[in-house]
C-alpha cells in the first residue's frame, strides 16, 4: 500500500476498534487508536505474513505487548483476511468469542503470542528472534510496547538480553503517548528519555512521529539496515489519535463511547476504507 492508502487503512482500523468497543460495551479505545498508524504500516506494508497460512514458519512475528490495545490488532487481522470474510461484529470480550479481552495465542488466528500482562513482550520476542537466528530464518520480530509499560522490570531484562544476543532481527516500537492508566507518565514516575535508555543498553534507537506513515516506513528501513543490534523506534503518539474528543484524554484509556460519540466517530473516520 502507498502512504495515503496506509493512512486511510489506519483510520479505518480506528473506526473498527471504536466500533467493537462500542458494541462490546467494554475495552481500551485510547491505547488502540494511539498505535493505529504503526499497526497499519506493519500489517499492510511491512510484515511478511500470510493470512491463508497463519502458522507459516518463515513469517514475520508480531507481539502486541501492550495487549489491552487489542481492538486495533483484531481490526487489522480481520481486514488482512485472517478470518475469511471481514468481521462486522467482533463481539469483543463476549463469552465464547475468539476476540478475548486481551490477545490469546492459539485462540485467535494470526496472534503469535498471548499478551496483556504488561512487560513481557520484549523478552518473549527475544526468544522468537533467537529461534530465527538458530534456524537460519530471515524473519523479523516486531513488538509494540507502551511507554508506561517500560516501567515493568522484566522489559529491561529482555532489552538487556536482546542486545547481548545481537538480535538485529528484532524491532521494538514504543508507543510514547505520555499516559498510563493512572495518569500522565510525567506525574507517576517520569520516563521521557526512552531513546537514550535504549541506547545505553546498546540498541539502535530512533525517535519519530508515530502518526507519520513515511517516517514509520523509513525508520523500519533504518532499523533493518542496522546490523548486530536490536532496534527500537520510539514513536511520539497521541493517545486516542483520530477522534478529537478522545485525543490526550486519559478517560479513554478504558471507556465506551455514547451513541453520539459513536456517530461522531463514524462521521470522522468512516468511509475511509
Amino acid at each position: 500500500m502507498n502512504t495515503a492508502e496506509l493512512k486511510r487503512m489506519a483510520n479505518h482500523l480506528r473506526l473498527l476498534a471504536v466500533d467493537m468497543v462500542y458494541k462490546g460495551k467494554d475495552g481500551h479505545p485510547g491505547p488502540a487508536l494511539s498505535i493505529a498508524d504503526i499497526v497499519s504500516t506493519l500489517f499492510f506494508d511491512e510484515m511478511n505474513i500470510n493470512p491463508e497460512d497463519p502458522q507459516w514458519e518463515d513469517r514475520d512475528r508480531f507481539i502486541l505487548s501492550k495487549g489491552h490495545a487489542c481492538p486495533i490488532y483484531y481490526a487489522a487481522l480481520s481486514e488482512k483476511g485472517y478470518f475469511g470474510e471481514k468481521i462486522k461484529d467482533f463481539k469483543l470480550r463476549a463469552l465464547g468469542t475468539v476476540f478475548q479481552g486481551h490477545p490469546v495465542m492459539n485462540k485467535t488466528k494470526g496472534v503469535d503470542m498471548t499478551s496483556g500482562s504488561l512487560g513481557n513482550g520484549i523478552s518473549i520476542g527475544t526468544g522468537m528472534a533467537i529461534a530465527g537466528k538458530y534456524k537460519k530464518k530471515d524473519y523479523n520480530v516486531f513488538v509494540i510496547v507502551g511507554d508506561g509499560e517500560l516501567q515493568e522490570g522484566v522489559c529491561w531484562e529482555g532489552i538487556n538480553s536482546a542486545a547481548g544476543h545481537n538480535l538485529d532481527n528484532m524491532i521494538v516500537f514504543v508507543d510514547k503517548n505520555g499516559w498510563q492508566s493512572g495518569g500522565p507518565i510525567e506525574e507517576t514516575i517520569g520516563s521521557n528519555n526512552i531513546k537514550e535508555r535504549f541506547e545505553a543498553f546498546q540498541w539502535h534507537a530512533q525517535e519519530i512521529d508515530g502518526h507519520d506513515i513515511d517516517a514509520i516506513k523509513e525508520a523500519i528501513a533504518n532499523a533493518k539496515a542496522a546490523k548486530g543490534k536490536p532496534s527500537v523506534i520510539v514513536c511520539n503518539c497521541v493517545k486516542g489519535k483520530g477522534l478529537p474528543y478522545m485525543e490526550n484524554n486519559n478517560a479513554w484509556h478504558k471507556g465506551v463511547p455514547t451513541d453520539e460519540q459513536y456517530e461522531e466517530a463514524v462521521k470522522i473516520l468512516g468511509g475511509a476504507e
Binding site: D112, S123, G127, I130, A131, G158, S161
Partner: peptide, 8 residues
C-alpha cells in the same frame, strides 16, 4: 519468556 518465544 525467552523459552516461550523459542517454543512458539
Amino acid at each position: 519468556n525467552t523459552a516461550a518465544g523459542l517454543a512458539a
